[in-house]
């Protein structure tokens, strides 16, 4: 399978700040999640691919076309849903989306017809004659998706697509993204810091941290085999327990619920050996194990490990 997007030793610098440091990567077809904490370089990467930012060094390719040499040909084939609100003022939704279609080269009649279709598709059919300025945050997210879709792109860049949406709207947006990627043949790159969103919509992820790629691959590969992660709750000196785990080369991450997620490296020597090892370390640290059970690795674990490794 040919890569949809390729980055070859891309460095982007703003003034003295290096946003991307010699990043090389390939985005396979389908849905790819771009993960990373704030300031990791996700938006910079997308804006570089759109040609908004010129890299200091390296090359970017989309569908095999060089971004620096063929920006218009590339932009004709991609749709961009920006993170911030963005619309042309003083227009109804249908006029705005049709206008975007015309800007992409669609004839007036086709642009208008497509505008009606995509507004129905994103769930704004009933509100399509309202001015965009009167839309709620969730509706604005949907119209941003509609304007990105109107010219039928082969690749969609979605920058934080569920920002500010209520739970129901968020689910509907994620269903749309998933449908586009899985059933409509549209390649999707989702930039988000919401791991469940990426896990639901994407097959592959690329984790960025401090301008470098911290991890990349399919979500299943990155999660690793099940049973190597344990949820542990202890009573006593948690810090001492964590210190002993770390000294034993066992990774450990806090969660919001007072539960530690513990990653045991290496192949298990036998059934229950890993649990026994954790209990032994707890005993040595003088803490009491209140809860210990195997857990399925999640994308949050992948993310935590990738970011923690750097």
């Amino acid at each position: 399978m040919d890569a949809v997007v390729e980055l070859d030793r891309v460095t982007v610098t703003y003034g003295g700040h290096v946003a991307l440091r010699g990043v090389s990567s390939q985005f396979p077809p389908g849905a790819v999640g771009l993960l990373g904490p704030n300031g990791a370089g996700k938006s910079t990467m997308i804006k570089s691919l759109l040609g908004f930012i010129k890299p200091t060094d390296g090359r970017l390719r989309v569908f095999g076309l060089d971004v620096a040499a063929s920006p218009l040909e590339i932009r004709a084939r991609i749709g961009y849903m920006p993170e911030n609100d963005g619309h042309v003022p003083g227009m109804s939704a249908v006029s705005f989306v049709a206008y975007c279609g015309e800007l992409c080269g669609l004839p007036v009649d086709d642009a208008t017809r497509r505008a009606h279709e995509v507004l129905h598709y994103v769930g704004l059919g009933e509100a399509r004659y309202r001015h965009v300025e009167t839309y709620s945050t969730g509706m604005r997210q949907r119209i941003k998706l509609a304007q990105a879709l109107v010219h039928d792109p082969d690749l969609l860049f979605l920058d934080e697509p569920t920002n500010g949406m209520d739970p129901r709207g968020r689910d509907e947006m994620l269903d749309l993204v998933r449908d586009l990627a899985r059933h409509k043949g549209v390649n999707v790159i989702v930039s988000s810091h919401l791991l469940p969103d990426v896990e639901y919509t994407c097959d592959h992820v690329i984790v960025l941290d401090k301008g470098r790629i911290a991890a990349a691959g399919t979500i299943d590969e990155l999660k690793g085999p099940p049973g190597r992660v344990f949820e542990v709750r202890v009573k006593g000196d948690v810090a001492a327990f964590v210190a002993r785990l770390t000294a034993a080369a066992i990774e450990c991450h806090d969660t919001d619920d007072d539960v530690l997620r513990v990653f045991v490296p290496g192949d298990p020597p036998g059934p229950g050996a890993e649990q026994q090892r954790i209990c032994r370390i707890a005993r040595e640290a003088g803490v009491q194990v209140r809860h210990l059970r195997p857990s399925l690795p999640t994308l949050e674990d992948v993310f935590a490990r990738a970011i923690g490794e750097r």
Partner: peptide, 18 residues
Amino acid sequence: ANDRRANALQVYLSKPLR
């Protein structure tokens, strides 16, 4: 100015136009 206020520039320039 109105396009800048509504962040429309990023919408325009993400389309195939210089």
